[in-house]
Design a protein around this nucleic acid. Structure first.
Length: 765
DNA sequence: CCAGTACTTAGGTTG
DNA sequence: TAAGTACTGG
């Protein structure tokens, strides 16, 4: 077991103690991941069946990397049998296998935040509530908190304390919304992120045989980042570990930064009372950072009341002091940091990936993005809108979802009339009403108009029938065709590909959208090939299961390597960089304004600051601006209290302009393909401006003469339109007020126009 | 149905 | 500021 030789004494003991409840408190940079990896490898070496091991990590990427490393020690065949992943992904899979127990379809959809908010918005509208008072994100927060504390809608409504809270905040209907929302999700065969944990709890609570099965399957349980688990997660683990009590949790209370999503440091303290004979190991030697960084971080975190005392130390070099830079504005901050990175990169050998810019909020990335782009410095941004959240991707995926699960209401709503197929808002609303009245799913209504009374015209019903037939034909292929083939079919026959292709020559954004779809299809192809060579099932449903819980960090690309990283401090957890730039250190930004009134919130911000500092290996630079643009106006800012909380012996103050002079600008340095995930081409969008409008307006209303002309229109006529120019009629439909024409304009593409309004003049017939 | 415009409001972090 | 939504006129 050579691999154990590289460990220090406390790491080795933590690795070798594989039986019984174990808690590892691991200081920042103390080799936590290494211990976890080695421990699992060691367990397998000791004859434990990987099938009996469950390891819960914080990101899917971490799980993947750990599986790989374990595989390199014990063989990848063995490593593959470990159940490893995030809480959400591991239990989503378990839920799929047991979905019928809970009355869910095996192919249940996972609603993301967008789906959830959109559904909540609809519900508020349907219940005739004030949407100023009941905002989707606010309701979602409330429901999320409830679910994470295992409060069901019924519990919620029965809980007087909770109901009083809602009443006094002027929102007495939250419970009713929660109940409606839960019911709608259930009817749609959908779970939101919190349901994945909530329903797992239900499953383990109500089905003893299931509980027993998993208790015996997972004889050995490991949980990383334990300080960031919430009550719902805590209880799952507690139940599963109840028989064997081979549970190992690893964490650092000083790095607990997710209380906003229900994480509870108390879970660490509970561990002692839940497993009184637990063993405690502390990893205190930091291998990552310089002495200055370790000590500076220690000096800050010491100010927190709530903490487990530990002594993090390092044998590394002393290192340089932490540079603190003040700039006048946020834009200057961007430039200064970019210049510093540029200078440092060229004064020491090494790649761009050695640098990271960390900030409190996603929107701070802009000034750095601009400044880096000007210097031709390649960068990538994590967070913000991820690939799978983009409209065009969600649209196509909605077809996939619908094919897998007809009841997926959000998916249906998205695509029933996209691309346009003449199924309007009113028809949709009437279908919704009918579904509600008959207490069935929306799909039930639209696939069986004969059985329900729906107030929509026959022509529309016909169109909906065609749509239903199309979706059914996709469903029929779901388990026959490989993912890629079906995805390709859907992209074509749904009309999405055509829709985006026709827009392609409009502008850079349209081109990008088309390319994103191509990228998605390429990704599905890759998936299909890979699964097929591994002799595993490669259906489109399988693909969606794989992809549903991916984040930006998980979808990191190979060719994205040599780039400066920009991300929030939250998403930097677990990562390390030689040079860290910690920006926007201003009161009300970091610490955030929302946190400064409560001690516990402020302490969490301070832990966040601690996490940020301890990402740095060699150097850390802190910056703040004296003024910052916010909501359209320039606001002046105070430097963050956290700067003065650092032991001043570790700081070196510097003003913005004194830094480096000998920088050579331009000269074709940097990469040609700059920018990262969010890179936007900086071209212009040329768009016809309707500047003749005012002249036309003066000509007065010509509505009557218009309608006369319309009667005479026929497919194939060439017509003239005020803004779109000359075009050819490709289709005519509807009658009277509803009569509309689809016209192909070579200049702008195909348009459908309501003839009641559009002024069309026949040029030739 | 389409497109331009007026209005609103954003509190912050994520699977 | 910027994005997203609601409204309105053709």
């Amino acid at each position: 077991m050579d691999y154990l030789k590289g460990l220090n004494e406390s790491q080795r003991v933590a690795v070798e103690n594989i039986e019984g409840p174990t808690m590892v408190i691991a200081g920042a940079g103390s080799g936590k991941t290494r211990v976890l990896t080695m421990r699992i490898a060691y367990m397998i070496d000791q004859g434990i069946d990987p099938f009996n091991i469950m390891a819960l990590t914080f990101t899917n990427k971490a799980a993947r990397e750990m599986t790989e490393r374990i595989g390199s020690i014990v063989g990848s065949g063995e490593a593959k049998n470990i159940t490893m992943g995030t809480f959400h992904s591991v239990f989503a899979k378990i839920l799929r296998m047991n979905a019928s127990r809970l009355g869910y379809p095996q192919n249940f959809t996972i609603y993301d935040t967008q789906d959830t908010k959109s559904l909540l918005k609809d519900i508020v509208k349907e219940l005739n509530l004030d949407d100023k008072l009941y905002k989707p994100s606010m309701i979602y927060g409330r429901i999320s908190t409830a679910k994470n504390n295992l409060i069901s809608p019924e519990d919620y409504l029965a809980n007087e304390e909770v109901m009083m809270e809602d009443k006094s905040s002027g929102r007495p209907e939250l419970g009713r919304i929660y109940k409606t929302y839960a019911l709608r999700c259930f009817k749609a065969g959908a779970m939101d992120f919190d349901d994945l944990l909530f329903q797992t709890n239900v499953l383990l609570r109500d089905f003893e045989d299931v509980l027993h099965y998993y208790q015996h399957k997972f004889r050995y349980i490991l949980v990383d980042e334990y300080q960031d688990t919430n009550y719902s997660q805590y209880l799952i683990i507690k139940k599963l570990a109840a028989v064997y009590e081979n549970i190992c949790v690893v964490g650092d209370d000083a790095q607990s930064i997710y209380s906003f999503r229900g994480a509870n440091i108390q879970n660490i303290l509970n561990f002692r009372s839940d497993y009184p004979d637990y063993k405690l190991f502390k990893l205190e030697q930091n291998y990552r950072s310089t002495q200055v960084i370790v000590e500076a971080a220690n000096s800050v975190i010491a100010r927190n009341q709530d903490q487990i005392k530990k002594n993090v130390w390092t044998a590394n070099d002393e290192g340089n002091r932490i540079k603190v830079i003040r700039t006048l504005t946020d834009n200057e901050e961007g430039k200064t940091v970019a210049n510093n990175i540029f200078d440092l990169k060229h004064s020491e050998s090494g790649d761009w990936q050695r640098f990271a810019i960390l900030y409190r909020t996603n929107r701070q990335s802009r000034s750095f993005e601009e400044a880096l782009r000007k210097l031709n410095v390649p960068y990538k941004i994590y967070g913000g809108l991820s690939f799978f959240q983009r409209k065009e991707i969600k649209d196509l995926m909605a077809y996939f979802r619908l094919a897998a699960n007809h009841n997926d209401e959000e998916a249906l709503k998205r695509v029933i009339n996209y691309p346009k197929r003449g199924i309007g808002k009113t028809s949709w609303e009437n279908v919704l009403i009918s579904a509600g009245e008959n207490n069935v799913s929306i799909w039930d209504v639209i696939s069986n108009f004969g059985s329900f009374n729906v107030a929509i015209p026959t022509a529309t019903k016909q169109k909906i029938n065609e749509f239903v037939t199309m979706i059914n034909s996709f469903t029929a292929e779901m388990n026959k065709l490989p993912a890629y083939d079906l995805a390709q079919t859907i992209a074509k026959s749904s009309g999405i590909l055509k829709e985006l292709f026709s827009e392609k020559d409009k502008g850079p954004e349209e081109v990008e959208r088309y390319q994103n779809i191509e990228e998605l299809l390429a990704g599905i192809k890759e998936f299909t090939v890979q699964k097929t060579t591994e002799n595993e099932s490669a259906s489109l449903a399988d693909y969606m299961i794989d992809v549903a819980l991916l984040t930006d960090a998980d979808t990191d690309k190979e060719d994205d390597n040599n780039k400066v990283t920009m991300m929030t401090i939250h998403s930097s957890k677990g990562l390390e960089f030689p040079h860290v730039f910690l920006v926007g250190l201003e009161e009300n930004l970091f610490p955030s304004q929302l946190s400064i009134s409560s001690r516990t919130d402020l302490e969490e911000e301070r832990r966040l600051f601690y996490v940020a500092l301890t990402r740095a290996e060699k150097s850390c630079t802190i910056s703040y601006a004296a003024s910052r643009f916010q909501f359209g106006s320039l606001n002046s800012c105070e430097p963050s209290r956290f700067i003065s909380e650092i032991d001043q012996n570790y700081l070196q103050f510097e003003s913005a302009h004194s830094s480096g002079g000998g920088r050579s600008l331009g000269g074709g340095f940097g990469s040609t393909r700059i920018g990262g995930l969010n890179n936007r081409p900086s071209g212009f969008t040329t768009r016809p401006t309707g500047n003749f409008k005012s002249v036309k307006d003066l000509s007065g209303s010509a509505a009557t003469s218009n309608s006369n002309e319309n009667v005479a229109l026929k497919v194939g006529y060439v017509v003239q339109h005020g803004t779109f120019g000359k075009g050819k009629i490709t289709a005519l439909e509807g009658a009277g007020e509803e009569r509309k024409a689809t016209v192909f304009f070579p200049q702008v593409g195909s348009k459908t126009l309501l003839l009641r309004f559009a002024k069309l003049t026949v040029i030739e017939d």
